[in-house]
Amino acid sequence: MLTEEEKKEIQKEVKQYPYPAVACIDALKIVQQHRGWISDESVKDIAQVLRISSEEVDSVATFYSRIYRKPVGRNVILICDSVSCMIMGYESLYQYISKKLGISFGGTSSDRRFTLLPISCLGDCDNAPVMIINNDHFNRLTIEKIDELLEHYK
């Protein structure tokens, strides 16, 4: 069941479009904002609000890389693995974080504090390597900076 607040936020988006289904991506983002991810139940609930089939909603949900169809940790670390960051050494950064948290790309730490994912180019290539934690952007990263940085995310 969607909360009243979620429904209200979705309806606000629906209003600016010619028909409700246009708000599909907005609706997925709204629900994910509240719950952290999109469950099968959320897919069905969104479909009902937008008056389309849940298969249609799921086809959209599974297409976009920033819609999570599996639960993620409280914080999501996205490490850029594109070519400029590769040249500037993202791999050693990844290995350090992976070892520290005990997870590989796609994994969530057992305390659910972090999920670690790769991300394509973040458009900050002159300051590579780059990563995002939740909505925060970090660049010119070195292994020495990582421990302190992660401390800010509980």
């Binding site: 594109s82 070519v83 400029s84 394509s120 180019c121 458009g123 900050d124 290539c125 002159d126």
Partner: peptide, 11 residues
């Protein structure tokens, strides 16, 4: 929707 790897001009 800038996302071409190596591109950071629109930002």
């Amino acid at each position: 929707d800038e996302m071409e790897p190596g591109t950071f001009k629109d930002r």
